[in-house]
Measured scan of single mutants.
Amino acid sequence: MTGIVKWFNADKGFGFITPDDGSKDVFVHFSAIQNDGYKSLDEGQKVSFTIESGAKGPAAGNVTSL
């Protein structure tokens, strides 16, 4: 699925993605970002991701920028 990064705190390594389908915002951890180098996201960035079952509920996985 796709969405827009609502916010991401690079110091803490997590944030939230707002899915394009209008569903509830999804937690994203830096370890789910699939790019080389520094793993961070920018507010407003368009991303593709999967929904994984995290310890505290749904979380984004396999996050790639579009």
Rank of each mutant, 00 (worst) to 15 (best):
G37K: 10
G22T: 04
E52C: 11
K46T: 08
K46P: 09
V26H: 02
L66K: 07
T64V: 15
T18K: 13
F14C: 05
G3A: 02
F30E: 07
E43M: 15
K12P: 02
A32W: 04
S65Y: 13
T18F: 06
D42Y: 15
F27Y: 10
K39Y: 08
T18V: 13
S53T: 14
G57A: 06
V26P: 00
F14D: 01
W7S: 04
N9T: 05
E43G: 14
A10M: 10
G3K: 00
V63T: 02
A10H: 14
K56H: 13
G54A: 10
G13D: 01
F30K: 12
N9D: 15
F27P: 03
D36T: 12
N9C: 13
P58C: 09
Q45N: 07
V28T: 03
F8L: 02
N62F: 11
F16I: 06
G22S: 06
T64G: 05
D21Y: 06
K12F: 10
G37N: 10
S53H: 14
N9Y: 06
K46D: 04
F14I: 08
F27T: 02
N9V: 04
M1C: 11
V63P: 01
H29P: 03
N9K: 08
I17F: 01
F8N: 00
F27I: 03
G37E: 09
G57R: 10
G44S: 04
F8S: 01
F30S: 10
N9R: 10
D11W: 14
N35K: 13
N62M: 12
G15N: 00
A55S: 13
S40T: 14
K56Y: 14
N9E: 05
G37L: 10
I4N: 06
E52G: 08
I33L: 09
F30M: 11
W7A: 03
Q34D: 10
E52P: 03
T18P: 00
T50R: 08
Q34H: 10
D20Q: 06
A60E: 01
S31W: 07
D36Q: 12
F49H: 01
T2H: 07
H29R: 04
L66W: 06
G54D: 11
F14W: 15
F14K: 02
H29S: 05
W7F: 09
G57K: 07
G57P: 07
E52N: 11
S31K: 09
M1F: 12
Q34E: 10
N35Y: 11
V63C: 03
V47D: 00
A55H: 13
K39W: 08
F27D: 01
W7T: 03
G13L: 03
D20P: 03
D42I: 15
A32N: 08
K39G: 07
F30V: 13
D42M: 14
G15Y: 02
E43W: 14
F49S: 00
M1E: 05
I4C: 14
G61E: 10
L41N: 01
G44T: 03
F27N: 02
G15E: 00
G54S: 14
V5E: 01
K56E: 07
V26Q: 02
T64M: 12
A59M: 15
G54F: 09
G3S: 00
K24H: 11
T64D: 05
K12G: 05
G13A: 03
K39S: 07
K6A: 07
F14T: 03
F8I: 03
S48T: 10
P19F: 04
V63A: 02
E52Q: 12
V47F: 01
G61A: 15
A55G: 11
V26L: 12
D25E: 10
D21A: 06
V5R: 00
V28H: 00
D20G: 06
S31R: 10
G13I: 01
Q45C: 07
T2G: 05
F14S: 02
K6S: 06
V47Y: 02
G44V: 02
D20V: 06
D25I: 05
K6G: 03
K12Y: 11
P58N: 10
K24L: 10
N35P: 07
D20L: 08
S40I: 13
I17D: 00
I4Q: 08
S65W: 12
I51D: 02
S53M: 15
F27V: 03
V5M: 03
D20I: 08
A60I: 03
T18D: 03
D11Q: 15
G13Q: 04
F49P: 00
G44M: 05
D20T: 08
G3M: 00
V26Y: 05
T64P: 01
D21K: 06
E43Q: 14
P19K: 03
Q34C: 13
N35A: 14
T18M: 12
P19E: 02
F30W: 15
V5Q: 00
T64A: 11
L66S: 08
I17W: 00
D36F: 10
S48R: 13
Q45W: 09
K46A: 10
T50Q: 09
G37C: 13
S31G: 06
V28I: 07
S65P: 15
G54E: 10
D20Y: 07
N62H: 10
Q45A: 11
A55P: 14
N35R: 10
D42K: 15
S31N: 07
A32P: 02
I4K: 12
Q45G: 07
F8H: 01
F49E: 00
I17Q: 00
L41F: 05
D21S: 07
F14L: 04
K56C: 13
K12E: 06
G37H: 09
S53Q: 15
T18S: 11
K56R: 13
G44F: 05
T2D: 04
G57Y: 08
M1H: 12
A55N: 12
D11N: 12
Q34V: 15
K12W: 13
F14A: 02
K56S: 11
